[in-house]
Design a protein around this nucleic acid. Structure first.
Lengths: 189, 189
DNA sequence: GTCTATATATAGATAGAC
DNA sequence: GTCTATCTATATATAGAC
């Protein structure tokens, strides 16, 4: 067996959640798509909510790992930000279902406080570090840090949507440059 | 009777949709909250989807009317954009449930193609005009227009969320200036 | 771990009286 | 227009065999 039944369930859930919406997707449709039995789903997950949470944590972990990739050796802060930005964008373009699912979680405010904290530590601490360093260096504007973080996420989502909807542009350097410039200029004076 | 039963249903639906999610809200919970009978809801709306659509169109119309308010007499393009931006932000801060509902519709892609077009004409044509005029005047950057429009919406949503979550800052001029600067600098070179 | 069969609640929607 | 009563399908979840 190449992938476990549990993984098949997670994969099918992601596909259906992103296509039809989390709350509009029944557990029975998930097991049907995964080709497993009802009992199998509820053996691996105590309930639907636990399935959603586990899927989300794994997706966010995946994004975090891709985003920080190769950003360590980069010299300037701007180059580091650009590397981070392009890594995240590549991830979104290559994983449109995962991006859609993340947006739903963000919009629907489904996560418990504890799980939101966990994701924050996994992913956003890197972003906060980058903003604070940039502010200390005088490179980034001295706007409220929470506003900057929120807008970074917002721009990441909207830009990703643009490239997913216009997939022919995802490797067009002019469009990629425009996207990064909008992001970067929003953060600088 | 101050408000009609139909309006009570729409009001209760908005409150429940924004709090629990559109798909997680049952029609029975709506009629219960509105204090009306099941049959009354299905007399005014053929089904749940029609209720969602009608609510969304009215909410977007509301936003569009608030946003363009007093922007006509403003001289420069930047001042016009700032007026538009602040009108929209004020609307969001004063109508957090409506904003939340709009975000859900946007994320969940619930609308039919026809209804999306209707909203586009109502609201986004104004934004597209502004961007194109700014590009012709050399004030705005020559980025792909769809990317710019998508990012404008994204920044509007994320900035609104920031002020709704930190409501004490919603009248703080420094924070409001920071928010507009991020928006404006994203669009200019 | 995986399955089938089933329990129980609730979903969206309709019929028809008033 | 508004109500009560009700229909049918489907939701999440469990029990227990293999």
């Amino acid at each position: 067996m190449a992938t476990s039944k549990k993984q098949q369930i997670l994969d099918s859930a992601l596909a259906l959640f992103s296509q039809n919406g989390i709350h509009a997707t029944s557990t029975s449709s998930i097991v049907k798509a995964a080709g497993v039995a009802t009992g199998t789903l509820f053996h691996h997950f105590p309930n639907k909510e636990a399935l959603i949470t586990e899927l989300y944590l794994s997706v966010k972990k995946d994004l975090a790992q891709q985003a920080v990739q190769t950003t360590e050796q980069v010299p300037t802060l701007k180059a580091k930000a650009e590397c981070f930005w392009n890594n995240a964008l590549d991830w979104a373009i290559n994983n449109p279902q995962k991006l859609q699912f993340c947006q739903q979680i963000s919009t629907l405010q489904i996560l418990s406080h504890q799980n939101r904290l966990q994701v924050f530590r996994q992913e956003l601490s890197f972003l906060i570090d980058l903003i604070e360093t940039g502010q200390q260096q005088g490179v980034l504007a001295l706007y409220p840090i929470e506003l900057m973080a929120e807008n970074c996420e917002g721009l990441f989502f909207s830009t990703s949507r643009y490239f997913i909807e216009n997939e022919k542009m995802s490797n067009n350097q002019q469009h990629r440059d425009a996207a990064f410039n909008m992001f970067w200029h929003a953060l600088t004076k």
